[in-house]
C-alpha cells in the first residue's frame, strides 16, 4: 500500500510538473496565475497522500492550510492585475 501511495504521489507530482510547463509559458498572465491554483490542488492531494504514507498526521493540517490559502495568489491577481485595464480592479469588472 505504501509503495502504491508513494507512486501515486510521484505520478501526481509529474502531472503537476507537466501542467506547470504548459501554463507558465503563458501567453497571458491569467494562464500563469493558474499555475498557483494547479499547485494548490495537486499539492493538497500530494500532502494528503504523503501524510498517510509517512504517518505524519500534521500533513493534513498543512493541506488544510493550503486549501484555505492557495486561492490567494489568484485573488491578488484579479484585484491588482486588472488595474492596468480598469481604474479599479474587481469593482468595475463585476459591474459590467
Amino acid at each position: 500500500m505504501t509503495e502504491f501511495l508513494t507512486a501515486a504521489v510521484g505520478f501526481i507530482l509529474a502531472m503537476l510538473a507537466l501542467g506547470l510547463v504548459s501554463i507558465l509559458r503563458g501567453p497571458g498572465d491569467a494562464d500563469r496565475v493558474m499555475a498557483t491554483q494547479l499547485i494548490g490542488t495537486g499539492g493538497i492531494a500530494a500532502l494528503l497522500l504523503l501524510g498517510t504514507v509517512a504517518g505524519v498526521p500534521a500533513a493534513v493540517d498543512v493541506a488544510l492550510t493550503l486549501a484555505l490559502l492557495a486561492t490567494f495568489a489568484s485573488i491578488a491577481f484579479v484585484k491588482k492585475g486588472l488595474s492596468r485595464f480598469e481604474a479599479d480592479g474587481t469593482a468595475s469588472t463585476e459591474n459590467e
Binding site: 500534521a58 500533513a59 493540517d61 493550503l66 490567494f72
Partner: peptide, 30 residues
C-alpha cells in the same frame, strides 16, 4: 511545504504554507 513535510518538520511546513501560500503571494503579486 511538501519538502518540509518530507523532512518531518510539520511546524515549518505549516509556516511555509501559511506564509508562502497566502501572504507572500498577495504581497509579491500586488
Amino acid at each position: 511545504a511538501l519538502i518540509w513535510v518530507r523532512l518531518d518538520a510539520a511546524d515549518v511546513a505549516l509556516t511555509e504554507a501559511a506564509i508562502g501560500g497566502g501572504l507572500s503571494g498577495v504581497l509579491l503579486l500586488g
